[in-house]
Write a protein that binds this DNA or RNA. Structure first.
Lengths: 278, 278
DNA sequence: GCTTGTGTGATTAACTGGGTTACAAGGATA
DNA sequence: TATCCTTGTAACCCAGTTAATCACACAAGC
């Protein structure tokens, strides 16, 4: 069929619109309208699988949200607002929500950050964006020495390199290891004062349990000021990223990684796979 | 009670989070967690009105979204991600949705904008943000002459003045009328090359039908290049803004407004209140 | 009159999400 | 060891929402 690849986009658009708060019918109607200059309820129904009698409700809501225009008459004509306008209308809505939400949460009784060294606390969090944000945060809070190991190129975002660069600017000694040649080059260019080296990471993946050994791949390892650690892995089936995170000089996880580094295990290229221990 | 004003914020935060796609339980749990450094399921339940047995589900989802961290153990400890991180995680999600949505819609079969003068077509749309966006759009597309009448100060946003300023920069003669002194001053400063005058707008409200005469108040009137018109009104009960919009030199609505302006009805300050004044 | 197409409203079915209960596992205490 | 309490998982029910269908009023054209 002619619109075969367009079909892909249609479904994607419908789904995204639903995630943005529209109902199924509303989303379908809007997408249908976005494909033609204008249409009647009947036409919308035919090209959108939405029952005709329900097109009116859906479109009315869309109109109230500022996503379609109506020409009253018989029959009524409907028209989708241009993409840029639609997006920017939606974006405005959400931006204002973000702003007031931030204020509202900040005005709550404060967490008062239990700051002490948090001896053996290890926290876990998931989701690449969340982990990326936390990484960012940690880099920004490093004052002295930063060690970073990245297992996959896609995790080295522009923002991250920006923060790394800022870190070196304020005198932090930044050391980055990765397997990927292009990433190393990119970092050398964006963060010239960082020390970059090659790392294979295999030793991490095949260390403890041979069964699910190559099931998960390492995402990132970050050690800041010898006292804050973040290690993330990526589940290859779901490609979901999960991370553990600990802080405090005497934190168990921190101690282990510091030890590993001190013995040169991490930085050396082929670290003799120090066998069944862990 | 001590947290009386904090209560306000709590509810607001919960509502906003729900609007951002979280379920009630999830929102409440997150807010509860945001008020303390960390908490167990039991504690969350007590301070959030969420049944304890359901805290786990909610928190698990929050964790998957990167909004809370978990410390595994017995009992499990939960902790909300810092505000900045949370907001920025959410914002990232939505931004990426907006982007892909835009692409998806743009890749659909195009509207092909029925461009001709569209003789008597009049379209209506609603919602202040949508109308503001459309206004913006129209100002940007004006090449020659722009006439703008605003009935309420809040409608003159910073963005709008920016576009007006750009318009004058590219040689468009901009004429703005409003009743509000401060708005006139603001515009004179931000858009020095615009012509600003006083307008009462009463004549519009009380013109045709004496019954619902003072029911609605005029929002804005915009005439671009003598061929594009937008008129909006604000329902005082719902304070919802609705607009009609027409284009084409010979469009009925356009012709009327042009005529009105030619006879000086709009620009004169005290226009002899044609009809049953009030 | 009849027919066709448009718009409104009511009605039913399916689903989602809130609220509750049951219960297994693991410590702590006696 | 037996018992009690807490924690965590899972299943369930109920209600409100939303998808889907149906009935009908109205207007225009034949």
């Amino acid at each position: 069929m002619s619109s075969s690849d367009s079909n892909e986009n249609r479904n994607q658009a419908v789904e995204l619109l639903q995630q943005l708060g529209l109902k199924e019918y509303e989303a379908k109607c809007f997408v249908a309208l976005s494909r033609v200059p204008e249409a009647t309820a009947k036409e919308i129904s035919e090209s959108s699988e939405v029952p005709r009698t329900r097109v009116y409700d859906a479109v009315r809501i869309l109109e109230a949200q500022g996503l379609v225009e109506v020409q009253h008459g018989n029959p009524q004509l409907f028209r989708a607002v241009p993409v840029e306008e639609a997006i920017s209308t939606l974006r405005d809505q959400y931006e204002s929500r973000f702003d007031t939400l931030k204020d509202a949460i900040e005005d709550l009784d404060r967490p008062a950050e239990s700051d002490s060294d948090s001896v053996h606390e290890v926290w876990s969090l998931s989701g690449t964006t969340a982990i990326a944000n936390r990484t960012q945060q940690l880099v920004e809070n490093t004052s002295d020495e930063l060690f970073l190991l990245v297992g996959h190129e896609s995790l080295v975002t522009d923002d991250l390199m920006g923060s790394l660069s800022e870190a070196t600017d304020r005198g932090v000694s930044v050391i980055v290891g990765t397997e990927d040649q292009s990433v190393r080059d990119a970092i050398r260019e964006r963060v010239p004062r960082a020390e970059v080296f090659v790392s294979k990471l295999d030793w991490l993946n095949t260390s403890s349990d041979p069964d699910d050994a190559d099931e998960v791949r390492i995402g990132r390892v970050l050690l800041g000021d010898n006292s804050t650690i973040l290690v993330s892995s990526i589940d290859p089936t779901t490609s979901k990223e999960r991370a553990v995170y600990g802080r405090g000089f005497s934190n168990g996880l921190v101690v282990i990684v510091r030890r590993l580094m001190a013995t040169g295990l991490i930085r050396s290229d082929d670290p003799a796979k120090r066998g069944g221990d862990e």
